[in-house]
């Protein structure tokens, strides 16, 4: 594959924890402001490509009745809702028996998308489906929107309507590096490193399988936006080895470093792996029950009219698409 070192993935899509926090906060803040200003947070793409918030006439304000006004999601609620749909991505991809690479790509698209937008601005269900669809196209496993929609009983038009928005929000940086391939590389390296015999080969095979499952989990954490795929793969291997205890992992790490990155500090790598490890430990897999109330809040933010059937009029934002994206 094209070289990770010169990739857009490395250059533009690896962040610090602080970056992520700021981005999530900024998107949330912008949506909140829109809610106050326009009574709704839903962003629509106009035919000329500009973005606009769908304005909702707030009758409630005049009555001084604060209860019927939709409340904005908190940053943590957004996070939980994203986590819910990130798990759904893997669910849907499994249902379609897509290769792991596709689900990883879709996940990364989804995560990158919501670095720039609040879930209040674009419904994560729609974006989830569109990310899966786009990942299939990019990974040469083309599935028609119709087929995808049918398989999960969703309107495929939603996918087509959001495709360009997603591609644009990703800046057309569509080649992503998933850790699965790096994992294969490390495992064959471990094989050589430990001079594995027959019985051990079987055990390494077990480690590989459980490490893949670890990568699946890692991909759902912020780690996929914080660390390069090689480090994610090593972290997965480490976690999986904890259970099996086949590899002398510390010795292996030192050997990897001395052979491949003589300049890289052993403790830097250990810190990175440690960070990934603890992110996975904190990984939440919310159920639909867990997010039910958030989802209800989201609905009223996106579409307040769904309750009181107030007339809506569109507010034309003066901002161009770029301004909105750059604000994040």
């Amino acid at each position: 594959m094209a070289d990770f070192m010169t990739s857009t993935h490395r250059a533009k899509w690896i962040f610090t924890p602080h970056d992520l926090k700021e981005k999530y906060k900024a998107a949330n803040h912008r949506a909140k402001q829109a809610l106050e200003k326009y009574g709704s947070t839903r962003v629509e793409v106009n035919i000329d490509g500009s973005f606009a918030y769908a304005e909702h006439a707030i009758d409630a304000r005049e009555n001084g009745d604060n209860h019927s006004r939709p409340k904005a999601l908190k940053v943590e609620e957004e996070q939980l809702l994203r986590a819910f749909y990130e798990f759904k991505i893997q669910d849907v991809c499994d249902a379609f028996k897509f290769p792991r690479k596709i689900q990883a790509t879709a996940l990364i698209y989804f995560k990158r998308f919501y670095l720039q937008w609040s879930v209040m601005e674009h419904h994560p269900k729609h974006i989830m489906l569109t990310c899966i669809y786009a990942a299939c196209k990019a990974e040469e496993n083309h599935v028609s929107a119709e087929e995808l929609g049918k398989g999960i009983e969703q309107d495929h038009q939603v996918i087509l309507n959001n495709e360009m928005l997603v591609l644009q929000s990703l800046g057309f940086d569509l080649i992503v590096y998933a850790p699965y391939r790096a994992l294969c590389g490390f495992l064959s390296d471990v094989e050589e490193f430990s001079g594995a015999k027959d019985e051990q080969l079987g055990m390494l095979e077990n480690i590989h399988e459980s490490a893949k499952a670890e990568v699946d989990k890692i991909m759902r954490t912020d780690a996929s936006l914080l660390f390069p795929p090689g480090q994610l793969a090593l972290a997965a291997l480490w976690r999986s080895n904890e259970a099996h205890q086949i590899i002398d992992f510390d010795r292996y790490l030192r050997s990897v470093l001395s052979r491949q990155h003589p300049t890289l500090n052993n403790s830097d790598l250990a810190v990175a792996l440690q960070a990934v490890y603890s992110l996975v430990n904190k990984l939440e897999t919310p159920t639909s029950k867990d997010v039910k109330h958030i989802d209800r809040k989201l609905k009223s933010c996106l579409d307040p009219g769904s309750h009181d059937k107030s007339k809506k009029r569109k507010h034309r934002s003066k901002e161009s698409s770029n301004d909105i994206l750059d604000m994040s």
């Binding site: 490509g49 644009q168 057309f172 698409s321 750059d326």
Partner: peptide
Amino acid sequence: DGNSNASSSSRA
């Protein structure tokens, strides 16, 4: 930068 360059449009 993809975002700023992937500008949208067509007044239509």
